[in-house]
Structure formats: C-alpha cells, structure tokens
Simulated assay, not measured.
Amino acid sequence: MELSLHRLRMLRELHRRGTVTAAAAALHYTASAVSQQLAQLERDVGAKLFERLGRRVQLTELGMLLTEHAEDILGSVERATLALEEAQDTASVRLTAGVWASVASGLLPTALTTLAADHPGIEVRTRELAPEDTAGAVRDGALDFSFVIDYSDMPMPWEPGLERAVIAVERLHAAVPTGAIPAGSVSLLELAEHPWILAGPRSHFGRAVLIACQRSGFEPKINHEVGEQATAMAMVGAGLGITLVSDLGLTLRPPGVDVVALTSPVMRTVSIAYRTTASRRPSLQFVIDAVRTAAAELGLGVRSPLP
C-alpha cells in the first residue's frame, strides 16, 4: 500500500470539518476534487473509510484509525523538514505564505528582495486570502506562514497550535475626497454624518472599524460595502463616501483622496503566524527578519524576538 501525503491531509481535514465542502474550502480546492481524491484514498487502502450521513461524512473505524496515523505521519514529515533545514549550512527551501493586498504591495516587494539577496536558497510563494482565513490555513497545513492582524479595539481570536511574530504596528487614517475635510486631523465622531465605504461585518477590518465608531458614539451610515482598501479608496476618489485606511494601505491610494489623521488613532498590529512545530525552522526566521526590516524602513517596525 502506498499512501499519498496529499490525500492524508484531505482525510485529516475531513475529520476536522465534517463535510467535504468545508474541507475543500479550508484546503482551497473544489469539493469535487476533494471527493475524487478521497475516493482514490479508499481504493489505495482497499477498504471503506467513509459513510455519508445526510450532508455530513462520518469516518468508519478504519477511517478513524487511518486519521490517527495521518496526524503522526504528517507531523513526522514536518519534523523531518525541520531537521534537514537545521542540518544544512545554506537553507534551500520553498515556503508558501498567506497575504492580502496591502501586505503584498506594501511590505513584500522590499522584504523578498532583501531575502533573495541574503538567502538566495529560500523561495517564498504567496497566496492571497482574506485576512480572516490566513491563520486557519496555516493551522491546517495549507500554508507555511501567514500575515495576520489584531486591532486595538478587537483582538483576533487565536488558533491553538500557532505562534506569532509581531512585525509592524499601523495606524488607521481617514480617507476622504480631496478637500472634504480641510483640517489636518479629525475625530471619528466628526465623520459621523458622512456616507461610509466599508468592509462588511463578517470581515475583521469591518467589525473593528464598526466597533471604533460605536465607541465614539455613532453608527456609520454604510452606503457601499466593499472588502479591499484599494477598492474603497477608488470609490472615495470618486466622491462616493469616506473610509479608513491603514499605513500599508496608503501605498494603494489613487488620485482624488486626502488622508487625514484621526485624533484618537485606531491601531492594528501585523504579525506573521506559523505553526508551533515550525518555530525552529531557519528559513522561517530568515523570512521574519526580512519582513521586519522592510517594516522598519517604512517606520512601522516593532523589534520583538521570535516567540
């Protein structure tokens, strides 16, 4: 019998999630692709591993047995990867990172240029995800590390088995149509009567801004619900409303947008999340150092040791 690590990861995720659809979403595959791979795993094993109970899938006794061994096998692969990296004088490895737009445009170009110069054997590939999804993808093994955010008014729920390294602290600023607010600074409450352009309440950013507005004494009138800061600022530039934007998001600012400081700043911390079992990987530490250097060059750096 020859077991595929790829299919064992899908089995593990199915056990965690309970449905093929949820497992596929967590692993960023289609449900059809996961179903086909799981069916092939049953053929590889030569035994029935799953039973359908309505929309959910229940593992048979043999399926549970294989899942337990899958955890051990996948953990051994990660430990072997770490041992090989530690044994090499020059790291040669490929890492996959979870990113979102402002990190990809504001931090990564400088960080990856520095990394390539100092450690040419390390290749970083990126996958753009919603900030709310990146930590879960690291936990599930789909990513080696990801960028995550905590807001001053709303800390992020933390995933067990993950650690984080703080790499930057950002302020949020008001982004308004040119000339709409002539003062150099403004309070959130003074923005209460403006129409807002904001991410939805299911997004971490949208919830954090909503909470900050509520604590300032008002409910923002949201005329346009959009997820990306770049999209929101383009709509601000067209005169459709106002929004808040982070320091890194300012790299995406289009013409027609003024940036106004908040008198009581809303802060957010940007960190790199990684599995606890990967904390000793040299390649990961080299990446964190390169990203911290890029953040420091932008005036956003926070020097703190790798947990």
Results as ranks from 00 to 15, higher is better:
residue 108 L to K: 05
residue 90 T to F: 09
residue 107 L to W: 02
residue 179 G to A: 02
residue 129 L to M: 04
residue 247 D to P: 00
residue 96 T to G: 01
residue 57 V to K: 05
residue 294 A to E: 10
residue 154 M to N: 12
residue 174 A to N: 01
residue 126 T to S: 04
residue 47 A to Y: 01
residue 143 L to T: 03
residue 76 S to C: 01
residue 303 R to D: 00
residue 282 P to F: 06
residue 303 R to T: 00
residue 235 M to C: 04
residue 177 P to S: 03
residue 10 M to F: 14
residue 205 F to Q: 12
residue 70 A to I: 05
residue 113 T to S: 10
residue 63 G to I: 10
residue 85 E to Y: 10
residue 201 P to A: 03
residue 112 L to W: 10
residue 140 D to H: 12
residue 20 V to N: 13
residue 24 A to D: 03
residue 6 H to T: 12
residue 294 A to Y: 05
residue 42 E to W: 09
residue 178 T to G: 04
residue 216 S to A: 15
residue 23 A to F: 00
residue 38 L to N: 02
residue 289 D to N: 00
residue 40 Q to K: 13
residue 132 E to D: 15
residue 121 G to I: 02
residue 132 E to G: 15
residue 299 G to E: 12
residue 281 R to D: 02
residue 173 H to E: 08
residue 167 I to S: 04
residue 132 E to N: 15
residue 164 R to F: 06
residue 187 S to D: 07
residue 189 L to G: 01
residue 292 R to C: 01
residue 99 V to Q: 02
residue 42 E to H: 09
residue 81 T to D: 13
residue 252 L to M: 09
residue 29 Y to R: 08
residue 46 G to R: 01
residue 153 D to M: 12
residue 166 V to A: 02
residue 1 M to I: 08
residue 101 A to T: 15
residue 76 S to F: 10
residue 278 A to M: 04
residue 281 R to H: 12
residue 72 D to S: 13
residue 124 V to F: 10
residue 14 L to T: 02
residue 85 E to H: 04
residue 133 D to H: 09
residue 8 L to F: 04
residue 117 A to H: 01
residue 292 R to F: 08
residue 77 V to I: 06
residue 239 G to Q: 03
residue 82 L to Q: 09
residue 42 E to V: 05
residue 221 K to S: 13
residue 168 A to H: 14
residue 209 V to E: 09
residue 216 S to L: 09
residue 198 L to W: 05
residue 200 G to Y: 03
residue 273 A to T: 03
residue 213 C to D: 06
residue 32 S to W: 13
residue 158 W to Q: 13
residue 62 L to D: 09
residue 279 S to D: 13
residue 171 R to G: 09
residue 166 V to T: 01
residue 66 L to D: 11
residue 93 V to R: 11
residue 33 A to V: 14
residue 183 A to M: 08
residue 120 P to K: 01
residue 44 D to V: 02
residue 161 G to E: 11
residue 300 L to Y: 13
residue 201 P to V: 08
residue 179 G to T: 04
residue 197 I to H: 02
residue 13 E to K: 10
residue 56 R to Y: 02
residue 177 P to W: 05
residue 201 P to C: 05
residue 155 P to Y: 00
residue 301 G to S: 06
residue 155 P to R: 00
residue 272 I to L: 05
residue 194 H to I: 03
residue 282 P to A: 01
residue 167 I to D: 00
residue 27 L to A: 03
residue 119 H to L: 09
residue 137 A to P: 05
residue 161 G to I: 05
residue 23 A to M: 02
residue 278 A to T: 10
residue 179 G to H: 11
residue 105 S to Y: 13
residue 168 A to N: 04
residue 220 P to E: 07
residue 174 A to M: 04
residue 19 T to P: 03
residue 219 E to K: 11
residue 293 T to G: 10
residue 84 L to E: 10
residue 74 L to C: 13
residue 278 A to C: 05
residue 88 Q to D: 12
residue 130 A to S: 10
residue 259 V to W: 03
residue 176 V to T: 11
residue 67 T to I: 14
residue 73 I to T: 15
residue 179 G to I: 11
residue 222 I to N: 00
residue 136 G to E: 10
residue 13 E to F: 12
residue 238 A to Q: 10
residue 266 V to G: 09
residue 253 R to E: 12
residue 224 H to A: 07
residue 277 T to H: 15
residue 194 H to C: 11
residue 2 E to R: 05
residue 165 A to K: 00
residue 29 Y to H: 15
residue 62 L to H: 14
residue 272 I to V: 13
